[in-house]
Amino acid sequence: MVTLTYDGSFEGLLTAIFEIYEYRFSDVSIVPADRAQANVFNDHRQSTSDPVKAERVWLGLKKKVSTAALNQLHRAFLSELPGIEDKLYQYVLYVFSSKLSVEYDYSNSFVLFIKQTDQKVRREKHRMEAFIRFQLTGDGLYYAICQPDYNVLPLLQNHFRERYADQRWLIYDSTRKYGIYYDLNTVETVSLSFSEEAGSGKNLQAVFDEKEELYQQLWQQYFTSVNIVARKNTKLHLQHMPRRYWKYLTEKQVQ
């Protein structure tokens, strides 16, 4: 069995898939370099990301399936699930082996898996669009910290750029240690060392706009007031707003 390692990027994965065809590997597994485990029985190969090879795979797929299906592949990749590379490879294999487009063949387990994974990633993206809470700093930056289950920041850019076109904002993924920053013109990926203390509300006065605390209080008050006690339904509440997201939700910081 061949273990093919790649750099963890989408381009890297497409390159790896190209090389499987190029070197005619059979019985192969693609693993990101940082997750690869040494195994004496396996043949280890390393693939280096190559934009030309990646492009060829992408264009090849484009001839076979719709743009929607291509986007699905990309989003499924962002799930970072262990083994997602092999599933994506099997999907690609199935696409290239068929004459017609197989993107709607949900009786094929790989096609269905990619579709379902894509749904999970999109749900997480949607959750982040809902649960991001900006705080306004003294120098006019709206910033938010989040910990999404999947690597969804790349999918969030457009939504936040279109919506908050007239304010500078920064969204930071504290699991993956990078953020996206909008400077009123473009969105850029930034990696910075960010102290979590700043977001915990302890030193609100020091860093934040003078009105920030007031609006947080108002929001908390609103959240409490709209609740109808006679209809309490904790199960439903938790289903929609699982506990793991509470950490960064302003309305959940009151005790």
Partner: peptide
Amino acid sequence: RKNKDKGLGNASNGICHAYTEDGRCV
């Protein structure tokens, strides 16, 4: 509703930003 002239906000598919303890969307 699209964001007009780099103003504030847009409106399209709807997002529930929070859920109260009775499970209703906010």
